[in-house]
Write a protein that binds this DNA or RNA. Structure first.
Length: 410
DNA sequence: TTAGCCTTGAAC
DNA sequence: GTTCAAGGCTAA
């Protein structure tokens, strides 16, 4: 069933062999050249059939219209073709290519571990033919996209019924955000499965310490999160470069929010509930100065969330508020991001006002700023661990740490 | 027009 | 100094 290695990827346009990243994603040499010629020379093609021609290696020459259409559909980027025709150097997609490579490497490692254990459900775990980060089907937005303001519409008719009892006074906007929120049990199962694979490696190389375990789980959570974000409402409408900036800005805050969310339902003081369902004790473990602060502040924040009884509706809004943070310096479409943030704020305010506590909204915002502070501490801790060589190299988290320092000169 | 190979140059 | 994705060149 497996046979071929994941490194031998095929061109998403025609299936030919890829020669590297070109205009946003891995493609073959010929589609790279075709895309360049088309965009540089502003070529206009006409399809002789019904604009649905099949494109593969043998037929790609037959209909340039459909070939170019497919180039755009799989996510090739018009803006990566240089107007000034300058040669050499690097463009703004560099970080994207790097993240894509890191994620593919992660998945490859997982797939490999999987082959050694159980190869029966590779497809369901997403290890085979993983979608590229830059792949998007938002073709039509390439041309029309500018500083357009997002407008909320109920595209799905009725949002899926969220878990738990139906509540009154939940704004439609929030219901829609909830409906596309990933299912905790599914994420949990996926990560448990992957953890099981790693146990075989750990048998060989020794059990990981608590730090390594939490590091590993955080990395898995981040991977799941990025996978989810790529297709989630509003985020998918952004230019890749802005998606990257937002991710680099918010990844640690998101991990913390998600983590806190998990602790709220249980009330075991000093016990940490992991995504896998395991509980670990953080009380009395000998932590350094920074880590002690992280743990203490984290516990305080969890207590605050428990006291406030922050619910799923509020969590999902807080998540979007963390993601759509217009503070990044190099955001191309700040207006869009500000607008999404404004809408989420508005919806959360409406929802909070419907509760019996008038100050609830500002308390929730206060929680967010505490999460922000906690995240800077946590990153500082991770950075010292990294400097001491105690963090696995080539990891997604390290990559995010570096990227954030590059972007924000921290 | 296509597509394989070549040259270039900023980021690392 | 090395990388590697841009643009350029050219035979088929």
């Amino acid at each position: 069933v497996i046979g071929h290695s994941a490194s031998e990827e095929l061109c998403p346009v025609c299936g030919d062999r890829v020669s590297g990243y070109h205009y946003g994603l891995l493609t073959c040499e010929s589609c790279k050249g075709f895309f360049k010629r088309t965009v540089q020379d502003k070529k206009r093609y006409v399809c002789a059939e019904t604009q649905t021609c099949w494109i593969d290696k043998a037929q790609r020459k037959r209909c340039p219209f459909c070939r170019f259409q497919k180039c755009l559909e799989v996510g090739m980027r018009l803006e990566a073709v240089r107007a000034d025709r300058m040669r050499g150097g690097r463009n703004k997609f560099g970080p994207l290519y790097k993240l894509d490579r890191t994620m593919k490497q992660q998945r490859r490692a997982q797939a490999e571990a999987h082959v050694h254990t159980d190869s029966s459900d590779l497809v369901s775990s997403g290890a085979v033919n993983p979608p590229s980060f830059s792949m998007t089907s938002e073709t039509k937005t390439y041309y029309t996209y500018g500083a357009n303001i997002p407008h909320f519409t109920m595209v799905h008719g009725h949002p899926k019924n969220p878990r738990g009892p139906r509540k009154p006074n939940v704004p439609l906007f929030v219901l829609e955000l909830l409906s596309s929120d990933p299912d905790e049990t599914q994420v949990q199962n996926k990560i448990r499965q992957r953890l099981q694979q790693h146990k075989h490696q750990w048998k060989k190389h020794g059990q990981p310490g608590l730090f390594r375990l939490i590091f590993h789980l955080s990395e898995q959570m981040l991977l799941s999160f990025i996978e989810w974000a790529r297709t989630s409402v509003f985020f998918k409408q952004l230019e890749v470069i802005d998606q990257m900036t937002l991710l680099h800005h918010c990844w640690s805050e998101l991990l913390l929010l998600d983590h806190i969310n998990r602790q709220v339902l249980q009330d075991n003081k000093g016990q940490l509930l992991l995504i896998t369902g395991y509980e670990v004790s953080v009380v009395g473990c000998h932590a350094g100065h920074i880590l002690s602060s992280v743990i203490q502040l984290g516990q305080d924040l969890i207590a605050k969330f428990q006291l406030l009884k922050v619910d799923r509706e509020e969590f999902v809004c807080m998540k979007y508020l963390l993601i759509f943070n217009p503070d990044g310096k190099q955001l191309e479409n700040r207006l869009f991001i500000e607008s999404v943030q404004g809408q989420v704020r508005g919806a959360l305010l409406d929802y909070a006002l419907s509760s019996q506590y008038p100050s609830r909204f500002s308390q929730l915002l206060q929680c967010l700023s505490e999460i922000h502070f906690l995240s800077t501490l946590a990153e500082e801790y991770l950075w010292t661990k990294h400097e001491n060589g105690e963090v696995p190299s080539n990891s997604l988290l390290t990559e995010m740490l570096y990227a954030k320092r590059r972007y924000f000169h921290l």
